[in-house]
């Protein structure tokens, strides 16, 4: 490449008026071995920029799957529901038990009542017998 051109480009480069493409030309020019002596001072600068672009980010990223938080909240809700369920389930069962006891008692009482009824029936017979007996007594 011609000297003049490169020198002109360099001038523009230091004034900040070169375009990206022109700067690329400069970099490529200075990457070559045969740079004239008076321009040699600039070579490391352009070489450095090319070298600097080679650096890579090699660290591993500890990315966690995103749905994790979703699952977390679901499990929290599930535990809540479970606790509530156990708590209310127990009281419901107690209620059931009480109802059962009530029904059993009622049954027993009604059994007693029918038996008692039967007793009074028999007493009614007795009464009739008593009346009949009285009638007989009175007649005599």
């Amino acid at each position: 490449m011609e000297f003049n051109n490169i020198e002109k480009l360099l001038e523009g480069y230091f004034e900040g008026t070169t375009t990206v493409a022109e700067e690329k030309m400069l970099r490529e020019y200075f990457m070559k071995e045969d740079v004239p002596l008076h321009l040699k001072n600039y070579a490391p600068m352009f070489q450095y920029f090319s070298v600097a672009k080679e650096e890579r980010f090699v660290k591993q990223l500890p990315l966690k799957p995103r749905k994790n938080s979703y699952l977390k909240w679901i499990s929290v809700a599930a535990v809540g529901i479970l606790v509530f369920g156990i708590y209310f389930g127990r009281s419901y069962q107690e209620q059931k038990k009480a109802e059962f006891a009530y029904r059993e008692t009622k049954k027993a009482l009604s059994l007693l009542a029918t038996n008692l009824g039967r007793g009074t029936e028999k007493v009614a017979y007795l009464k009739e017998f008593e009346e009949a007996k009285q009638k007989i007594y009175n007649r005599n």
Binding site: F14, E15, G16, Y42
Partner: peptide, 20 residues
């Protein structure tokens, strides 16, 4: 940006020449 860039490039050049 242009001014700042020009200044930076010139500084690098001058210091490099100094070192050489």
């Amino acid at each position: 940006v242009r001014v700042s860039l020009s200044r930076a490039r010139k500084t690098v050049r001058d210091k490099l020449v100094q070192k050489h």
